[in-house]
């Protein structure tokens, strides 16, 4: 079970959270101006990286806030968590946190 560092509450077990998938996929400003292919891409296509991915989490059984996280999908270690709206931190898996050094 993951240990997730909610930017608002601190470290909590995964069961308190809901994962919302890849982050930084902005909803188009004017969806009606988007073509079918691009709209399909927005709805369904994901990076699915083997490595660090930015993803959305909801601390649903906690503060109720959505936030973003960088997590290595190979080790499942979190590199960072950060508030919605903040840019993706410029960090890689080498800085992944473990319970002892985070």
């Amino acid at each position: 079970m993951l240990l997730i560092d909610c930017p608002y509450c601190g470290k909590r077990p995964e069961v308190e959270f809901h994962c919302g998938g890849e982050a930084h996929i902005a909803r188009p400003e004017t969806p009606t101006a988007v073509g079918d292919a691009d709209w399909g891409s927005f709805l369904y296509y994901r990076t699915n990286p083997k490595g660090v991915q930015a993803e959305r989490w909801l601390h649903g059984h906690g503060c109720g806030r959505w936030f973003n996280a960088l997590r290595d999908t190979v080790s499942d270690a979190f590199v960072a968590t950060y508030e919605m709206g903040k840019p993706r931190p410029d960090r890689d898996a080498a800085t992944a946190s473990t319970p002892s050094n985070a």
């Binding site: 079970m1 993951l2 994962c19 991915q53 999908t73 080790s75 499942d76």
Partner: peptide, 13 residues
């Protein structure tokens, strides 16, 4: 599990 992972390991829950 609820998240993308290539670890072939999930949570015990």
């Amino acid at each position: 599990d609820q998240y993308v992972s290539y670890s072939q390991q999930g949570g015990i829950q």
